[in-house]
Design a protein around this nucleic acid. Structure first.
Lengths: 297, 297
DNA sequence: TAAAAATACTCCATAGGTATTTTAT
DNA sequence: ATAAAATACCTATGGAGTATTTTTA
């Protein structure tokens, strides 16, 4: 059954005339005739009694008309709904994020974005960078924020922020404000576990400079950034952490930054999507917002 | 928008697979692909993310699915409704009837019919035969019962009963039980007005025998059968009336029948319809019933 | 006679098919 | 290697048109 035919029928029913309906529907009169005939065959009943130049709807036509108007109305609503849906920024943004950006970055970004688009809500899932990327390729998530590029050619990595890794120590553990790389590896060091983006990027940077894990003196491996910070404050060792994660501590002098001579340890933060997935408008909006903001920095 | 395409879409959405849907819909997989593509073009949005061998519906698809199921459901209801409607004997039968059958015939027929089809109700409009026929050709009525064939080639006259016209007199007005036609026209006579079926058929029968209106001695013209009967009882004259209308009076001897020698005055009662109108099922049922009954008599 | 519907036809878009290719598991 | 979707191509149905005929007001 074609909805267009129902529209034609409804028009004929209202005007009690094929030719008037043909004008309103921008069709010719024979086309109207053929549509009505086709409906009559489909339902196996006469819909209009043709009395020469006038027509009279049958009882069946009256029944059909009631249903037809309902269907037509619904069809129009679909068109509207599908049209307006495109520009409507609503719903819940589900974001997977690795620890550092999820803890120290997203809360402020979320708040600012929600001020602009109040009908968007957020759900943040904090996991390892690797798990986030797996969730994207397993289609459990549409968008993620990670601090390391772990490959996977289905994933679109869009850098939007640069984080700096700095060496921190307790105020007493290291005396000076500077240290060379050679000296650094002799100092006891507190690290995150494997799989952490921070750990990954730390190893990366050091291995670029010919330093492997076994060269370091590791005094502790801890499961969260907070735990690492506590350990450093307690004097277990120094650590390489994201500047984002220690801005409070640096301000209040509970931790101090040790500059490493001639070494800049920066890493990009990426917002990631799956190349083949279609993003709902709210996600697109968030993407635009976050990338726009990063340009203004 | 084609409802068939919506059915295809819904099937794909439920199975999350083009090829499964193709089996269920008895179509081939490329046909499914092309329907989905056509919907995507119509609504200008992707409905499924194709990830090689799996597909995932987009947000838009979820919205469309909700609407699509509603429309599909309605379409199915129409099919049912239009199908079952054909055999459903319900509604109000509006019948136009001339005086004699409407007064002395229809009440019993109606009662018997309604016992068989309790969901049918009746509305009887009593008018001149001519007015009934005009209402049929003016499409104000679908069915009528008249006691005279007044022509009009659009009208289908179906005889279903024979009424006999008899001469009645008060018990004292005429002495004997028989009268010849020549004697009858000398007797004062009470008639119905012009336009009445009884009057029409009376004139017809008499003119067939070479007797015109001016040959008769008319003692009164009255507007209803009841009035005529009262006048005859009072002795104003004799009258030619339907046997149907005086069965009670003959039984109780308040009127007596005068047989006219060698003359049989019968007339047919017709059930009439417009040749070009489609009758609702209840009307068809009534027609069948009334014609079936007439055969059993 | 004019206006409305039916009929006869032509044309083209598209729903359907088959055969094949691409892609991901 | 296999299963699923896409692509390419063919056919036939039917929606739309024009031109004409039939019917009735």
């Amino acid at each position: 059954m074609d909805i267009h035919q129902l529209r034609v029928f409804a028009s004929v029913f209202r005007d009690k005339s094929f030719s008037k309906a043909s004008k309103k529907m921008f069709l010719t009169q024979p086309t109207i005739s053929s549509h009505i005939r086709s409906l009559e065959e489909e339902y196996n009943c006469k819909l209009f009694d043709r009395l020469g130049r006038t027509i009279i709807p049958t009882k069946e036509a009256e029944v059909l008309y009631r249903f037809a108007t309902e269907i037509i109305e619904k069809a129009d609503v679909i068109k509207d709904a599908m049209g307006s849906f495109k520009n409507k920024i609503t719903g819940t943004l589900i974001l997977g994020s690795s620890t550092i950006p999820g803890t120290y970055l997203l809360p402020t970004i979320m708040t600012a974005f929600q001020k602009k688009y109040p009908s968007v809500s957020f759900q943040i899932i904090i996991e390892d960078s690797k798990k986030i990327i797996d969730s994207l390729s397993g289609h459990e998530l549409l968008m993620g924020i990670v601090g390391a590029k772990l490959g996977n050619k289905e994933i679109n990595y869009m850098p939007f922020l640069e984080d700096e890794l700095i060496v921190v120590s307790s105020t007493s553990f290291i005396k000076g404000k500077r240290i060379s790389l050679e000296e650094l590896i002799k100092v006891p060091m507190v690290l995150r576990e494997e799989g952490s983006g921070t750990r990954k990027i730390t190893e990366q940077i050091l291995s670029d400079r010919g330093i492997s894990y076994s060269d370091m003196s590791v005094s502790g491996i801890l499961g969260s950034t907070e735990a690492v910070k506590q350990a450093v404050k307690a004097g277990l060792g120094v650590s390489i952490v994201s500047r984002l994660s220690v801005s409070e501590e640096l301000k209040h002098n509970t931790l101090k930054e040790i500059k490493v001579t001639d070494v800049s340890m920066r890493r990009k933060i990426y917002i990631i999507t799956h190349k083949k997935r279609t993003l709902p408008p709210a996600y697109h909006m968030f993407l635009n917002y976050i990338i726009g903001e990063s340009r203004n920095r």
